[in-house]
């Protein structure tokens, strides 16, 4: 029987907090950037010019149909060679994670916008509203209500996906885990602790999602 010794991790807790900070930093920044990308791409795909549709679709499918790990490595190793610019690991991670999140958020936005009844556009037009105003005041608020559950589950995935940045030696929670393991020779305790930390951060988020979903359901 394995003798667990979590006390052995005591000297390393500051590294875990540090790693969690990095994980949260990448989550927040790439979710925000991804949302911006997703909103723009999602709107362009539903209401934008026809010529924009194909390239945007190509972007979305490229990032949805290749593994994030491959994208990360490609942006870190291949992209700098192609465009002749040095890229820090941190920058590569930010770009890859943002583009990845953007592709998924774009589809969520598009789905939400298209789920709004056509009659809503007509009602807005019938009282003399301009297109942009109908979108902002009438369609988008309803689309966001529809999107919230999908948005939260995608954001939960995004936080977990940041663990991939450890591959290019960015010091997130998982990376710190490998560092601590190398120093403490306690992989079971370390990775169990890391898993618990992820869980403790994410579980409340799923509860919030459930609650929101129920509340929105009641409103409709």
């Amino acid at each position: 029987m394995y003798a667990w010794d979590f006390a052995a991790l005591k000297p390393y807790w500051s590294l875990i907090w540090q790693g969690l900070g990095v994980t949260l930093f990448y989550t927040v920044t790439t979710v925000l950037a991804g949302l911006l990308i997703g909103l723009i791409v999602g709107i362009l795909r539903t209401a934008g010019p026809r010529w924009a549709s194909m390239p945007l679709r190509a972007y979305i499918e490229t990032f949805r149909c290749t593994p994030l790990l491959v994208q990360l490595i490609w942006v870190y190793y291949a992209l700098p060679v192609l465009i002749g610019v040095d890229m820090s690991a941190a920058m590569a991670c930010f770009i890859a994670l943002s583009l990845y999140a953007g592709a998924f958020y774009a589809e969520i936005f598009r789905g939400g916008i298209e789920a709004v009844d056509r009659g809503q556009w007509e009602a807005g037009r019938a009282i003399g509203m301009r297109r942009s105003k109908i979108f902002r005041r009438i369609v988008l608020p309803q689309a966001i209500q529809v999107m919230i559950p999908a948005f939260i589950s995608q954001t939960i995935l995004q936080l977990k996906n940041t663990s991939l940045v450890s591959v290019v030696a960015v010091g997130d929670l998982l990376y710190q885990g490998t560092v601590i393991t190398a120093a403490s020779y306690r992989p079971l305790e370390v990775y169990t602790t890391i898993a618990v930390v992820y869980f403790v951060v994410l579980f409340p988020l799923t509860l919030v999602a459930d609650r929101l979903e129920r509340r929105l359901g009641a409103h409709r």
Partner: peptide, 24 residues
């Protein structure tokens, strides 16, 4: 143009079969 249409529709009220109220 969109703005010309909007100006017309200010002055023409319409009521639809399926109401189309803004649910939010």
């Amino acid at each position: 143009r969109d703005d010309e249409l909007a100006l017309l529709r200010r002055d023409v009220g319409m009521v639809f079969q399926h109401f189309n109220l803004f649910p939010h």
